[in-house]
Nucleic acid binder design. Structure first.
Lengths: 195, 195
DNA sequence: TCTAGTGATGACAGCCGCTGACATGAGATC
DNA sequence: GATCTCATGTCAGCGGCTGTCATCACTAGA
């Protein structure tokens, strides 16, 4: 007889998303989530350092993929192109059949400032890691920070479009389009009329 | 006889920064801060919605100043120049004699992830407000988001340089320099005549 | 001058997030 | 079969935060 079922962590995440969706984040206690899975509250906090984090697992996989993409980019590529390569690698983690899940998750996050705060923090972590990877490749400051932060913004904007109702393009396509917008914003399209 | 001294809020903020610096954020309870000022813990939470917020008051003044600067920019100016105008207005809130205070505050924030998270959130709020102001001026999406997020990044980077040891340039000067870096990062070299 | 607000505060009870400490027992290792 | 490992249960407890009600200097109106 098995003492504990495997996959406790994943079941906690699924139960949390479901309960948050039903009753809301604040109306769901950590003990509720644990009970739904049949474990103790203490076990919940052994898997996740805090209640919000149950929604933000898997972030490290994204970061790893992006950094891997950054590293694989040609050595002589401009910083923003290197970032673009990283984002493309990250986009592969989001095939189209994850859209529904991403939408549900986003809906929960959007309604609770504490969750929005955590999400921002996660994106900041992505930017920080990209910056470090750029610096390791030889990019100087503040170009590395600016490129990394811009990349993080592009990811966020493109992701928001990706989960929009009726959107059919892939995340990678959307990232490319947003990146083009960014280039035209700060480059040729905006260098006129500065006075 | 006066029932309560005025300026409770400000005294709470000063006591909090002092205690956080001495013992650290987590080692200081809200009750400690309240006791240092001679009020009850309940009063602390009447002035600040949560313990972190005691370090982040005054953010709204920055946001207001930046938005005011945005609104005052020429109607036909490109989005990033409008953002630059907003940042210049915001920089006026940070005369050089605030550097010491800003450094102290930054040191506390830098050591506690929960405070970094809140700071990110505040900057995100600035970006969101700038974006709305840009949209209200007629800037389209996603240019508005990208310009606003870029502006927020420029502010953060410039602010970090401003409080660096040995730095003597003003915040406005640093913002201009960082903005130039951003422009050259994403495309054509800048050719600016901004006063 | 009496009276009815007003508003910042104190006092207190209580929920919940989160942690430390210790015990437990099924499976793996040797 | 003895021992080790390690995810879990149990329990006590702190601190963040909130709702509720009382207090009382001060103010405004009758």
């Amino acid at each position: 007889m098995v003492r504990w079922e495997p996959g406790t962590r994943e079941r906690l995440q699924a139960a949390a998303l479901e309960l948050f969706t039903e009753r809301g984040f604040e109306q769901t206690t950590a003990a509720d989530i644990a009970a739904a899975v049949g474990v103790s509250e203490r076990t919940f906090f052994r898997h996740f350092p805090d209640k919000r984090e149950v929604l933000f697992d898997g972030q490290s996989r994204l970061v790893d993929a992006v950094v891997e993409g950054l590293r694989a980019a040609p050595a002589d590529a401009p910083a923003l192109d290197v970032v673009a390569a990283g984002l493309r690698a990250g986009a592969e983690l989001f095939p189209d059949d994850l859209r529904a899940w991403a939408r549900l998750r986003r809906a929960v996050i959007a309604e609770h400032p504490a969750l929005l705060e955590r999400e921002r923090h996660k994106m900041a972590g992505l930017a920080r890691t990209m910056r470090a990877a750029l610096v390791a490749r030889g990019t100087s400051e503040p170009a590395a920070t600016l490129a990394a932060e811009s990349g993080s913004t592009v990811f966020t904007v493109a992701f928001g479009q990706w989960i929009a109702e009726g959107e059919h393009r892939s995340l990678a396509e959307l990232q490319t389009a947003v990146l083009d917008d960014l280039r035209s914003l700060t480059g040729t399209a905006s260098d006129r009329g500065t006075a």
